[in-house]
Amino acid sequence: MAMTQSNTAIFSRPESMQSTVTHYCPGCTHGVIHRLVAEAIDEIGARDRTVGVAPVGCSVLAYNYFNCDFLEAAHGRAPAFATGFKRLRPDMIVFTYQGDGDLASIGMGEIVHAANRGEKFTTIFVNNAVYGMTGGQMAPTTLPGQVTSTCPVGRNANEVGYPIRMAELLSTLVTPGYIERVAVHTPKHIINARKAIRRAFQYQAENRCYSMIEVLSTCPTNWGKTPEEAVKWLDKEMAAYYPIKCFKDSVREGNK
């Protein structure tokens, strides 16, 4: 048996990620999603021509994790920010990374119009049904009956309406090319999420269309659950309200 060859690395940190200590809570899936995005950027070979646009929320510090140029937008405005950037630099790869308070509440106008214009960037929409950074307040995505610090007896849909399904909402627009909802709470879901995120970046590299990948994510801290309970709650409750599926892929459907 030849032992002269050194061990071959079969798993390593993507080039588009930095080596750093996480600030995310135990059981939070932001870290997994960051990695999937970094892998996608590596795979299309675009690290040195990619800019990420951070939201306001837990992932405002995303630039501490990615090894590419990173820009910090105002709350909810990442799609407008990314529009301005990408229009002037169509040769670069641009992605926004936004939470549900950022994208589905204060930034609703910006996301709808950027998607509707078919801006050629990619949105990674991390939906954990709560405002994370500010301490677990009700988001537009909070499930009916879900308890948060600003709906202490549970979200009352008669008073504040039902949660907004962003992937479905954007799919009603003619222009956006690729919209899929994925999750990262099991290995199988991670593999599918990886494919979807990779596909979205690939479409951008080919200058095809606007893409949004909605990722269902856990927030054990603000859900008041252990990481294990959080995974179960996502699987049972969130996935029931937010179907995990591809809503639109105009490229594969042959429309782009």
């Binding site: 405005r77 950037f85 229009r87 910006e110």
Partner: peptide
């Protein structure tokens, strides 16, 4: 609101 933020992004180039 969007225009101001488009400029923010555009100026970053």
């Amino acid at each position: 609101v969007a225009v101001g933020n488009m400029l923010f992004g555009a100026a970053s180039t």
